[in-house]
Design a binder for these strands. Structure first.
Length: 570
RNA sequence: GCGGUCGUAGCUCAGUUGGAUAGAGCACGAGAUUCCUAAUCUCGGGGGCAUGGGUUCGAAUCCCCUCGAUCGCACCA
């Protein structure tokens, strides 16, 4: 009995018929639990293929299932569903497996190489609160895919080649001059206003002294650029570590351009006749003035479903962000990734088509780029939107919210919504330790299990309970809902991984916690249902096995989510 | 104007990738604690799934229209 429960039943159902289109068959819990524990649509699928009455087919399959001792109370319902219950003994037989470390670790990836690129914030300042969502989603998806057998590389792309780096260096220079009292004018409005550059300037001054005070821009620019990038990156990494995020690879746009990768990849696309010089039509949004018609180097993204062809070169002759991004994704392909997943902010949505087009062109359609657009986070302060002003340098940083509520809370809350739905993050609600707050709801359930273990020790003394020697039959009926929830964990993992939806794990944990809290409270009224029973050692051990299974699931889920399980709440 | 994302209970959101009578939490109403932590639990009211069509045994889910929200739309990232 190595496979997960849902697979176990899927196999049983599949054996009932001899068909090829097994992918179409679903074996899942029905919406309404009163119909049964599992349900299959197989009769409806067959009815279509064989042009027969689904209910008749359902009856035939139901009859086969009725002969199976692992299936109970088989019923056929209206359109052609076959429903059944899981016998208690099957469920109980799974208990030891549920307690194992590798429970729910199903191999979906088969070692396929996946590159997940996330955060990729510009190295011009600390990461802000909005970045944390993509950081968490990307990180948790990476861990999830690792868990199910993918070979995952977590990657951060450094946009260190553009004009904004020059502005950064000049802003730093201004702060540097300030240190030596060499500038009277206030900070120009094109400059980055954040106070963090003052610190960077101090570090730079500590290293070089006043060496650059009198020199021309050409002397200091490159040095200031590199110094600024290095310092910003160190700061960003620091912030990410505070969030529990650690990338495997940092790729530099600048290095990529220097290596000639952009020229190479464009040459290759030229060979495929996908690049030409042309003139773009004026965009409708652009009312007038600024726009000038110009011939430029274009990529034929329209051949891959994009709306217009896209420019590769700026007016000054340097590459556009898109050009180096093409080279970057080529680089990923060359490194042998079977699949690429990029996490972008929702404001980059207009960029998806052209990038997918590029990947398709580069790999002749062989490689897939999946772009996850992460919606923005609205920071709330007790129901009101927190004011942020980038201009005044008063935006809320990732560090601010991590320091305020803790890494675990940030990570959990970021997963309480689908990526493509906007999320409100209310500081006040999130630190509140109440049922309003899903983090504490789950943590509390976990803490309770540990208080049970303590209670056990107090009652029976210190001793090992071997799961394999426990008589699971002693578990009361009231434990079954929790047991069934835990039995569903592998299926949840598969769905979350297959759909690339890490948020499902957070929702599942809330279900587990709910089932447990419910069981717990039944024990308040009916002492027989408590976990630790001073008069019944054997039954206590059975309960303990269930508790351990639940702990195991929560610990596994938390480790995928990068959250620390708390044994005792105070 | 074009494109992306989205529209589900009063509020915040799930919805097993086309399944059955659409689900949670909050809020509202009524209850549970001499007890393994009440930071919890139990019960109740409340929804033509934005609108109109289409595809089929079957649609919140897939396709098209309309309305609304939001993001983007030469060269910036």
């Amino acid at each position: 009995m190595r496979e997960a429960l849902f697979q176990f039943y899927k196999n049983i159902v599949e054996k009932c018929v001899d068909i090829e289109w097994k992918d179409l068959i679903s074996v899942d819990p029905p919406k309404d639990a009163s119909f049964g524990d599992f349900s299959t649509n197989i009769a409806m699928i067959l009815a279509k293929k064989l042009n027969r009455n689904p209910v008749e087919i359902a009856e035939e399959i139901a009859n086969q299932l009725r002969n199976n001792e692992n299936v109970e109370r088989v019923e056929v319902k209206k359109p052609g569903f076959v429903n059944w219950f899981v016998p208690k003994k099957v469920l109980l037989a799974y208990l030891p497996q549920m307690c194992e470390k590798d429970y729910a670790r199903i191999n979906l990836g088969n070692g396929r190489k996946v590159n997940i690129e996330y955060v990729s914030a510009n190295p011009t300042g600390p990461i802000h609160a909005g970045h944390t969502r993509g950081a968490v989603s990307g990180d948790v998806l990476a861990e999830l895919l690792k868990f199910v057998g993918y070979d995952v590389t977590k990657e951060f792309y450094i946009n260190d080649a553009g004009k904004q780096i020059e502005i950064l260096a000049k802003s730093l220079h201004h702060r540097y001059m300030e240190l030596f009292g060499k500038t009277k004018e206030s900070l120009p409005n094109w400059a980055y206003p954040g106070a963090y550059l003052v610190d960077t300037a101090k570090k730079l001054a500590a290293k070089y002294g006043d060496k650059f005070v009198e020199t021309a821009e050409s002397e200091w620019l490159e040095i200031f650029k590199q110094f600024a990038i290095d310092d910003m990156l160190a700061m960003i990494k620091d912030d990410l570590h505070a969030l529990g995020v650690q990338h495997d690879v940092f790729s530099s746009e600048k290095d990529l351009v220097r290596s000639g990768a952009v020229d190479r990849v464009l040459e290759m696309l030229k060979g495929k006749n996908l690049i030409y010089r042309g003139v773009l039509p004026k965009p409708k949004s652009n009312d007038s003035e600024e726009w000038e018609e110009r011939e430029q180097l274009l990529f034929r993204s329209t051949e891959f479903g994009d709306d217009v062809d896209r420019p590769l070169q700026k007016s000054d002759g340097s590459w556009t962000y898109f050009a180096s991004d093409i080279a970057y994704h080529m680089n990923k392909i060359e490194r042998g990734f079977d699949e690429m997943i990029d996490f972008w902010g929702a404001d980059h949505g207009g960029y998806v088509k052209r990038m997918k087009a590029a990947v398709s062109a580069l790999s002749n359609g062989a490689k897939k780029l999946d772009v996850k657009l992460v919606q923005l986070v609205r920071l709330m302060e007790d129901g009101r939107e927190a004011k942020m002003s980038k201009r005044a340098g008063t935006f809320i940083t990732a560090r601010d919210i991590i320091d305020k509520v803790g890494k675990d809370v940030v990570r959990f809350i970021m997963l309480t919504r689908r990526d493509d739905a906007a999320l409100d993050f209310d500081f006040k609600k999130v630190v509140e330790q109440s049922k309003d707050n899903p983090v504490f709801y789950v943590q509390y359930a976990y803490a309770r299990t540990h208080s049970v273990l303590k209670q056990f020790e107090k009652t029976f003394g210190k001793q090992d309970v071997r799961i394999s020697e426990v008589n699971a039959n002693l578990l009361s009926e009231e434990c079954l809902p929790l047991l069934k929830t835990i039995a569903d964990w592998p299926r949840q993992v598969v769905m979350a991984a297959r759909n690339r939806e890490p948020h499902r794990i957070a929702f599942f944990l809330a279900d587990v916690a709910a089932a447990f809290h419910s069981l717990w409270n039944q024990g308040k009224e009916n002492t027989v249902l408590r976990c630790v029973l001073p008069d019944d050692f054997d039954k206590t051990c059975a309960n303990l096995a269930l508790i351990k299974a639940m702990q195991n699931v929560i610990e596994t889920a938390f480790s995928i989510m990068g959250i620390t399980a708390i044994k005792e709440l105070r």
